[in-house]
Every structure is written in C-alpha cells, then in structure tokens.
Design a protein around this nucleic acid. Structure first.
Lengths: 239, 239
DNA sequence: CGTAACATTGACCCCTCTCAAGTGCCGTGG
DNA sequence: CCACGGCACTTGAGAGGGGTCAATGTTACG
C-alpha cells in the first residue's frame, strides 16, 4: 500500500482513518518500472500525478548542449509531480534511477479530494511546499557553499528523508545513485564528484560502496554541511 | 487594493467576484515599509502570511561565514511567505529591497478560506507551486549554465513577471537591485556581476543605469538564457 | 563640501572543468 | 570456465571561469 506516504504525512500532522481511505481511493493501480525510464516527460501535460511507492526518481531538465540538471531527488512516499495537478504543463521530466513501483493519482480525483477534504488538501499542499523548501536549500548550496559542503548537505538531506519513511537508520542508507547522477544533482563533473567522495572517505566521515552509504561521523558531516533539518518539516504540527 | 495579485491570478484562471471579495477579506490593513527591513525573520513562526502590494523583496538565508544567498526575488502581487501557512516555521527570511507596501493575511483566515473556497485554494496552491518552479529554474542556471547565461535568464524572468502584473512593458523595467544583491541572487561576487553587466552592455543587448533596464535585443537575451517562460504559467487554464 | 554607498577596473589566484588513460566489476556468450 | 564488452569508478595533467584583494570613479545627500 502507501505506507511510506502515510509515514511521512503522519510525522507532520494526524491523519484520520477517513483521510487515509480518501488518499487510497485517489490512487490507481500500482505499476512496476525498471531503472532509467522516463515516467513523466518534459513539457508534457499529464492528466494524473504519480506517487512513488518504492525506488528512486529524479526530476531533471535537459539543456541545449546536452547537459542535464537534476532539481530534486525523490524517494519512496514522494509524489514526484503533484504540482502538475495545478501547474498543468510540466517544466521538467522525471526519470527512474532504480527499479520503482509507482501509482497514478488522476487529477480529476485529486480535484474531488480538494472539494471534500480541506485538511488533507492542506497536507498535500504542504508536501509541494516542502519540495520548494528543498529547492531553496539546493540553491543555497550551489550559490554559497563549497562543493564538499554541498555534497555533505545532500547526504544529510537524503538520510533524514529516508529515515522519515523508514528506509534508513543506524547511519546506513542504500543510495542507488551513480557518480554521474550525483554530478547532475550537484552541478559538478563526474570527476569532481569522485574526488569529493574520496575526500569524505579519507576524512573517515563515511564509507560508500555498492550503493551502500554508512555515515561514520554524522556530527562532522552535518557541521561540514551546516545542516539544519527544519526545512524538511518532520515535526508534528497541525495545519 | 490588490490589483497586481488579481492581475496575476487572472492570467491563470478566471477569478469570480466572490473570490476577489474573499481574498480581500483575508487581507489586513496595508503597511508601508522602507528598504532594507526584515519583514519576516529566519526561523520565525509567523501567524500570518504577507502579500507584497508594491516594491521588491528578497527571500534569503544567512550562512555561518556571513555570506548570504537569495533564493527568490518577489515583486508586486506576490505572497512573499504564503508557504508559512502550512510550513509553520520559516526556513528563510524576507527583506525589503525597496520601499514596499505590504498587507498581512492571517493564517486563521487563510484556513477558513481553504474550508470555503476550494477553487481559490487551488489558485493559491498554484502560486506556491510556481515559486517552486522558479526555484528549479534557478537551480538549473546555477548548476549547468554559464554566469552570463544565468544573468540573462534572471533578467528574462523578472521582465516577464513584472509584465504580468503590469509593471513592465516595451522592454523596459525598473529594477532597484544593487550589484551586491544580484551577486547574492546569482551566487557570484559583486565584481563578477559588474563584469557580466558590462558584457551585456558591450554586446548591445541592454542598457542599465539608475535602476532602469532597457532590453535592446530580447531575442538575443532569451537565446543566451535558453529562456522558456512556460514555468511562470502565464497561460489561462482552469485548475 | 564631506561622506557614504554603489559601480568600475586591474592583478593574481584557486577551485573545478576537460581531456585522457587506466582500473575494477559484472553479465553474457562461446 | 574463460574471454569479452560495457559501465562505473579512479587518477593525473593542464586550462579556465570566477574569486579575492585593492584601488579608483561616480553619484546622492545632509
């Protein structure tokens, strides 16, 4: 089912049984998608949004010179394009970075939900607002932090987000991200990503192999990143 | 009144008379604020959001080394912190960049609005979703474009946004932004901002003095920026 | 007319890029 | 069981975009 989504929303506010049912009623049948597939196309006008039930996705834009910039990473429990419900036309694409399970949420049903469940609407609104908060952190990292601080911040963020949905703990997480993908996230070259990771390894801040990251020194990682998790809004506070 | 907000919302969807009234009822009394004042404090928990009725504001975060990154510029008709309605705690501050007129929108009244006006709620939701779209464009500019392309993109964006609220036209706009502020927007040094502007002047793409920008060659500016205004969602399409 | 804030310009430096070569791992097919 | 190809990761060398520091010019205003 949609446990990861429920986990995340319940961290922020109480979710009534009726609301859980309403959310489940919005969702269409699950679908399995392999890694490397576009599940939302740039400039498209989808008639449904997509809930990511397991796996990793990236929102990205392609540039004329062939370059790519990833503007957000999505994990289990995230709506990857909930904003298209009101935005209509996509300003970016979404690609799977690992094997994924997804479920559609037709815009017509979301619309009904906003007519009948104001509180749940506010919770979904909050979810898109947190996407924006994540974007702002990335902007800060890209504009005013060093590359290694940026990398550290990304890892702190992903760890906290995975922990929130029950997919990370004890300073260990599975990250099926190649260094090329990380370059497109950080706005750096693959070569430099590699050097940043070896730097973190040398400093004994983490180990990273086979897509498994173990954070050996969370405090030093968070300090390097100036990480403050407030923007992920994982405190329970009624909306 | 709130004409600039109405202008902007009407570009996206039809706004009924009842909805205009409902919006006006949400707003508290106008207040004049001089340039350089924090109207929302970082980490604060405001009980109201703020509509910018005239002037320019910046959303920013301060770093430990004293550096500053601006994550969005706001113009007349923008809610500068509508997201705080569901986010509760601010992840950034908002400062006036010019003399401004603002009006508060108490969260309690916004909450009532979401209970009674689902369509208007979706329009406000859309406004925050467009903030996120703007953030994504900035991320793309910072990560994968050159500094001059980034500057060009910023100018295209500001021109279109000001035009949408009736504050720019004929390729002319008033921009009361110092080069230091632009540096904090672009993630560059003041010195480099200065060089970028002189480059654009030398290429005869624009003139810029006394806070007045005239775009002499929109096509070349937009091409340099790879600018596609879709993300500003200025087409009328019902939500 | 003095001062402060902003804009401009030059010299030098460093972070990150590009290009290039090489290594390691894994799945496939003979 | 091994050869092979492909993909990801690793490492080195040289280049360049943008930073820092510092001086100077310009404009607004009390």
């Amino acid at each position: 089912m949609a446990e990861t989504l429920f986990n995340k929303l319940s961290r922020r506010d109480t979710l009534s049984e009726a609301e859980r049912l309403a959310l489940l009623e919005v969702l269409g049948p699950e679908r399995h998608v392999p890694a490397g597939v576009d599940i939302v196309t740039e400039h498209d006008r989808p008639d449904h949004s997509i809930l990511l039930m397991s796996g990793f996705c990236a929102r990205y834009v392609t540039l004329e010179d062939g370059g790519r910039q990833i503007s957000e990473l999505n994990v289990s429990g995230d709506f990857v394009d909930l904003h298209s419900f009101v935005m209509k036309q996509m300003d970016h694409g979404v690609i799977t970075l690992s094997d994924c399970v997804i479920a559609p949420a037709p815009h017509a049903r979301l619309r009904d939900l906003t007519e009948q469940h104001p509180h749940l609407t506010r919770l979904l609104w909050l979810d898109t607002v947190i996407d924006a908060a994540i974007h702002r952190q990335w902007i800060t990292c890209m504009g005013r932090r060093t590359a290694s601080s940026h990398m550290a911040h990304l890892l702190c963020e992903l760890y906290k987000r995975l922990e929130a949905v029950g997919l990370a703990g004890a300073c260990v997480m599975e990250l099926p991200l190649t260094q090329a993908v990380l370059g497109d996230v950080l706005g750096l070259s693959t070569v430099h990503v590699n050097r940043l990771i070896s730097e973190l390894r040398t400093l004994q801040i983490l180990t990273w192999s086979q897509g498994r990251v173990e954070i050996l020194a969370w405090d030093r990682l968070a300090e390097l990143a100036e990480f403050d998790p407030t923007y992920l809004r994982l405190q329970c506070e009624p909306v």
